[in-house]
Design a protein around this nucleic acid. Structure first.
Length: 213
DNA sequence: CTAGTGATTCCCT
DNA sequence: GGGAATCACTAGC
């Protein structure tokens, strides 16, 4: 049976909670990106929690900088960072201002605007790979640094919004170590995903890169 | 399927 | 100057 997902926007209060509550609760929600070419919608299937300055894996661990400033602001805003010289990744800021916690959006299923997402992700071998991985997700959803600081809970038109969707029953939520996080931050099992979902990205342990000559 | 590596730029020490 | 919340590609099993 197909039930139509709830298109109610998530209010700011949804994000104004501890990040370890918000992260699993985001699974099954619908991220909507409004572009001039029409909307792209994504059902979230994999996320990671980053707990501000308490968390060695978090960009906010060493305090506020030019890059991570949005994380220290109000919840419900989008934090976009550039990494590995080529890619963008997007987060949703959680908790009270100053908490600097955020949820990294790692993977999802494109459910609307598939044609547009395919054009942005030409190397994807099938539609399950369109947003399988955080940089792939950002690419498919046309998210880059221009959207850093966007309020996803603002009234009226916004380039990004999160809708209620259907959510995911808690017995379908799995969790484990975060991908690509090194050092002391690797101990926390703060990656959450939907059980047996084919759009979840493969786990990769952090590998330190060898120095180039 | 897994493991290894180059790409490429920005941030922070 | 070192490394990064990654991806795509290749080789080999």
């Amino acid at each position: 049976m197909i039930t139509s997902p709830d298109r109610t926007p998530l209010p700011r209060e949804f994000f104004d909670r501890p990040v370890l509550e918000v992260a699993p609760d985001l699974l099954g929600r619908i991220l909507v990106r409004t572009t001039p070419d029409g909307p792209i919608a994504l059902r979230l299937t994999e996320v990671e929690a980053y707990d501000g300055q308490n968390d060695p894996g978090s960009h906010a661990y060493r305090g506020r900088t030019a890059r991570n400033g949005v994380m220290f602001g109000p919840p419900g805003h989008v934090y976009v960072y550039f990494t590995y010289g080529m890619w963008f990744c997007m987060n949703l800021v959680c908790g009270a201002p100053g908490r600097a916690s955020a949820v990294l959006l790692r993977a999802g299923e494109v459910i609307e605007g598939v044609e547009q997402a395919r054009k942005r992700r030409l190397s994807a071998r099938n539609d399950k790979e369109l947003a399988k991985g955080p940089a792939r997700l950002a690419t498919a959803m046309d998210v880059d640094r221009a959207l850093d600081g966007t309020d996803a809970c603002a009234p009226g038109q916004t380039p990004l919004r999160v809708l209620s969707g259907t959510g995911v029953p808690s017995d379908q939520v799995r969790n484990g170590p975060r991908t690509g996080v090194s050092g002391d931050g690797a101990v926390h099992p703060w990656r959450f995903w939907v059980a047996d979902d084919p759009t979840v990205s493969p786990y990769r342990a952090h590998v330190p890169r060898r120095r180039r000559s």
